[in-house]
Design a protein around this nucleic acid. Structure first.
Length: 508
RNA sequence: CGGGGUAUAGCGUAGUCCGGUCAGCGCGCCUGCUUUGGGAGCAGGAGGUCGUAGGUUCAAAUCCUACUACCCCGACCA
């Protein structure tokens, strides 16, 4: 088919030595490599506020694509967006015991509402006379304020279900932060739904989990395991927490999204009841679910290499960049005519294109720059191409470049983008397969966990055992796979009977 | 919050032990010319109260004290 004639010549790759200077490799220092990519690819930087980041335009453009895709998926399944306050009255927090227990330690608190000039004339100080009657918490998540609000929204079965999502920022006062993976303030979406039956709420929880998994795999090109969290890892206030769990290139697991079945916990805590058709008063059933800017971190670590960022075409802000190569202004003009034509043809296909005709940087510099920023496809057009009616196409995922006839270029590029999307998914999938191990003995387990990867093992189902394993190996249960096969066995740690394999790993 | 470290130009750093032409280098930035198919070359140029506040001294980037910020390792977490 198309692609066969597409890559007809033996692809040449770019020599490593000329690329990615001043840049750590994954082998040398994985954490540094991650940081270098985030900063040098212009995704984000540290801000003047400790633990908080500035998401730069290029990084934010990726987040916007994630938002747009997820937002449509939510709306297609009947959800609507709304917005609830940043501040939550402190008293709301203590209404659900497990919830307050889980979040109290990391809440930022607003105590005053006014500043005044400092008596010593240097700057401003808190005006002690402007103390809040009731202190406000900056939301670490919005269950409490939302359920306090839902009480007034819901009276009858006719008011159900309530299917609301909000895009918001939240604050969790973390000890140690890392760009995107864990920041004090982060952006996310949080869905909060209310249902008349337990079954419907569980169905909602699973529906969202499927949306998250689909998004991760089809848009981010990142394979994920869908699973249930163990009680230790469960969301504070949930009955069951489900997750999508991904494996990063350093062998550590990353929770990429969570969907919670909240039972009637919040309905009871906030007294949210409805009248059934039979005129009986019942507490409603709830779910909540979210993904955050942490997905950006996952995206970086899923595909990038020692030459910089690698983006899946479906989320790349710039899918194709065109770089002109010329000596004289007349050449640039001739190239630009062709380039603009190609740009238009690609745009007509819904492909985002940048034609970089800046004269302030040389072609080599631009090549390096766009490679670093993960632009999936680069077209280079020079005088030679004009003569021959050709264009050089380079793909970021494999670093291969080839020269093709310009005819039908927009279809070639469109197919290539699909191919890249598929290729990086397959690559990530193979990596996960190669780094997933089933172990049967404790010695094997310790050894495997140390080396990294997903470790499938039997577990006796108790929190005590999970905690002991965590203390001894730093590995936690990342997920009890939903589609995992039931299989009788013995707990890796205690030898007690177990009915299924769970996934252990060290985690972010 | 414990343990360790760092702070000099936009970024990366030398100098700190041994106080006195020590404020230097690389990248980046600006101007000009030559260049442009993988991060160009040459020439010229701009930019720093050496984290902050005190102290010692004839003299402090350098020694002393306090403070602040950041980084790494732990505990905690999406």
């Amino acid at each position: 088919m198309h692609l066969l004639i597409f890559f007809k010549k033996v692809p040449k790759t770019i020599p490593k030595t000329v690329m990615a200077k001043d840049f750590s490799t994954r082998e040398e220092n994985y954490a540094q490599w991650y940081n270098d990519i985030v900063i040098k690819a212009d995704l984000a930087e540290n801000s003047a506020v400790r633990g908080c980041m500035v998401i730069k335009p290029y990084g934010y453009a990726i987040w916007e694509k994630m938002q747009a895709t997820l937002d449509k998926m939510f709306k297609d399944t009947g959800h609507s967006n709304a917005y609830f306050p940043l501040f939550i009255p402190k008293s709301f927090f203590s209404k659900e015991a497990a919830h307050v227990e889980g979040f109290a330690k990391e809440c930022a608190v607003v105590t005053h509402y006014r500043l005044k000039n400092s008596p010593d004339g240097k700057g401003v100080v808190v005006d002690e006379t402007a103390k809040l009657e009731e202190e406000l918490i900056i939301r670490p998540t919005s269950e409490t304020i939302i359920w306090d609000t839902y009480r007034n929204w819901i009276q009858s079965y006719r008011d159900l279900p309530v299917l609301v999502n909000q895009w918001a920022n939240v604050v969790r006062w973390e000890m140690r932060t890392r760009l995107f993976l864990r920041t004090t303030e982060f952006l996310w979406q949080e869905g909060h739904t209310a249902h008349s039956t337990k079954e419907e709420a569980i169905e909602e929880t699973m529906k969202i989990l499927d949306i998250y998994a689909t998004f991760a795999e089809e848009w981010m090109a990142m394979p994920v395991i869908k699973g249930l969290k163990s009680p230790n890892e469960r969301f504070a206030g949930a009955v069951d927490t489900y997750c999508i769990e991904a494996l990063m290139q350093d062998g550590k697991a990353l929770q990429a999204g969570t969907s919670h079945f909240l039972g009637q916990n919040f309905a009871k805590a906030f007294d949210v009841k409805y009248l059934t058709k039979e005129n009986k008063l019942e507490h409603v059933w709830a779910t909540s679910w979210g993904v955050s800017t942490r997905l950006m971190g996952a995206l970086v670590m899923a595909h990038s290499d020692d030459n910089g960022l690698v983006l899946p075409p479906k989320l790349a802000p710039i899918q194709v960049v065109i770089v002109p190569i010329y000596r004289k202004p007349e050449q640039l003009q001739a190239i630009s005519e062709v380039a603009e034509k190609i740009k238009k043809a690609l745009q007509d296909k819904g492909i985002s294109v940048k034609y970089d005709d800046r004269d302030t940087h040389k072609p080599g510099w631009k090549f390096a720059e766009y490679e670093f920023k993960g632009v999936p496809v680069r077209l280079a057009i020079g005088p030679r191409d004009l003569e021959n009616g050709t264009v050089e196409i380079a793909r970021r995922d494999t670093l291969e470049k080839e020269t093709y006839q310009m005819t039908d270029i927009e279809n070639k590029v469109e197919h290539l983008l699909d191919q890249i999307q598929d290729n990086i998914y397959q690559k990530a999938f193979s990596f996960r397969e190669e780094n997933t191990f089933k172990v049967d003995t404790w010695d094997e387990f310790k050894d495997r966990v140390e080396k990294g990867g997903f470790v499938l093992a039997h577990w006796d189902g108790t929190s005590e055992t999970e905690i002991k394993i965590k203390v001894e190996t730093k590995a936690t249960i990342r997920a009890i796979p939903i589609d995992g096969k039931k299989e009788a066995g013995k707990c890796i740690y205690t030898g007690n009977p177990s009915s299924e394999l769970v996934i252990f790993a060290k985690a972010y």
